[in-house]
Simulated assay, not measured.
Amino acid sequence: MVIDAHQHFWQYDPVRDAWIDDSMQVIRRDFFPEHLEPVLAANGVHGCVAVQADQSENETAFLLGLADKHPFIKGVVGWTDLRDPHLRDRLAAYAAHPKLKGFRHIVQGEPDVNFLLGDDFCHGIAALAEFGFSYDILVYPKQLAATAAFVQKFPDHRLVIDHLAKPDFKTGELDEWAAYMRRIAQAPNVYCKLSGLVTEADWQHWQQEHFEPFLDVVLECFGPNRLMFGSDWPVCLLAAEYAQVKNIVTTYISKLSTAEQNNIMGGNAISFYHL
């Protein structure tokens, strides 16, 4: 089964979604399951994981509502305030939703590069583990030192790095990023998503070879059993169509065994998110 481990839905709101600036006109509209389902079918993808794009519990409820109505949405990664002292009460309520698989915070938007290491935030992550929820790590390379320390705090928790931690595909500079990714990957409970590639590249002029040195690093250090394909649809539409995004990954992993390719294209997501 082929699973897209990372995509989004939204009903566009110009105030809430102010991050979608004038350069992103193509995604300044609604994106619902009825828009994605035929795209997945055309690309041989059987299901997806819907990931939060807005930091509100309304967003989590919105995604769960969509997942309840559309069987192809296999899981949801939502948002809740992980620093809330009453978090465990919230998680106990969320545990009743079988399609809610984990949570994410937009750490890349936090001004403190050590945000992940805050005591209140780490207490929240520990609570997620108690309820069986995974955590998606969304960071920039400048936050990878903190990320490396963070994953050491949670050796038994299911953690996944979104978008390869957004390295600089435009310049091709990868040494410092690669050193941190290798350190992080030493923790066997940490996975990495092959997602968000084209949006961190030159939108108009990206090429397959721009990504391959970075993909080489994560394949080497995470291995084929801890990597997952994700489209980052509809954000990917800024730079590529869905088929192009999928093809970047399938072309790269074509050198691997069939079993390894199947794991990256779906099996690992099924295992990690308990789909």
Rank of each mutant, 00 (worst) to 15 (best):
Ala201Trp: 01
Arg88Ala: 13
Asp13Phe: 04
Cys236Arg: 03
Glu260Asn: 13
Val107Leu: 11
Leu194Phe: 11
Pro155Tyr: 07
Gln208Leu: 14
Pro224Gln: 05
Pro33Gly: 07
Phe9Gly: 03
Lys193Asp: 00
Gly196Ser: 10
Glu209His: 14
Thr60Met: 10
Gly102Val: 02
Asn189His: 14
Met265Lys: 09
Gln186Cys: 09
Asp13Val: 05
Glu59His: 11
Lys69Ala: 15
Asp156Phe: 06
Asn114Trp: 00
Ile253Asn: 00
His210Leu: 09
Gly172Cys: 11
Leu159Phe: 06
Tyr252Ala: 02
Gln186Phe: 07
Ala96Val: 12
Lys246Pro: 02
Asp120Ala: 14
Val2Arg: 05
His157Lys: 11
Ala239Leu: 08
Gly118Glu: 09
Gly78Ala: 08
Asp17Pro: 08
Phe222Arg: 02
Phe211Trp: 08
Gly196Leu: 03
Ile184Glu: 07
Ala269Val: 00
Leu63Glu: 02
Trp203Glu: 04
Pro188His: 11
Asp119Glu: 12
Ile137Gln: 03
Ala178Pro: 12
Val190Arg: 07
Arg16Leu: 13
Leu91Glu: 05
His86Thr: 13
Lys246Thr: 01
Phe222Gly: 03
His274Glu: 09
Leu100Tyr: 10
Asn263Gln: 15
Gly118Pro: 08
Gly223Gln: 05
Leu117Asn: 15
Ala50Gln: 03
His210Cys: 13
Gln25Ala: 15
Gly132Cys: 04
Lys99Glu: 04
Asp17His: 15
Asn114His: 12
Met228Trp: 01
Asp136Arg: 05
Ala42Cys: 11
Gly75Gln: 05
Lys69Ile: 03
Val218Trp: 01
Pro234Tyr: 04
Leu237Ile: 06
Tyr94Met: 09
Thr171Met: 02
Ser134His: 03
Asp156Ile: 03
Phe31Lys: 08
His274Val: 05
Leu215Pro: 02
Ala259Lys: 13
Ala18Ser: 14
Arg182Ser: 13
Ala95Trp: 11
Phe32Leu: 12
Tyr94Ile: 08
Ser134Met: 04
Val235His: 02
Gln25Trp: 01
Leu128Tyr: 05
Leu159Pro: 08
Arg182Gly: 14
Met1Thr: 07
Leu197Glu: 01
Val15Pro: 11
Val151Ala: 08
Trp177Ser: 07
Gly47Glu: 01
Ile20Met: 13
Ala18Gly: 06
Leu197Met: 15
Gln143Thr: 04
Phe214Tyr: 12
Pro155Lys: 11
Gly47Phe: 01
Asn263Met: 07
Gly223Pro: 10
Val51Ile: 15
Ala165Asp: 01
Ala61Val: 14
Ala127Val: 10
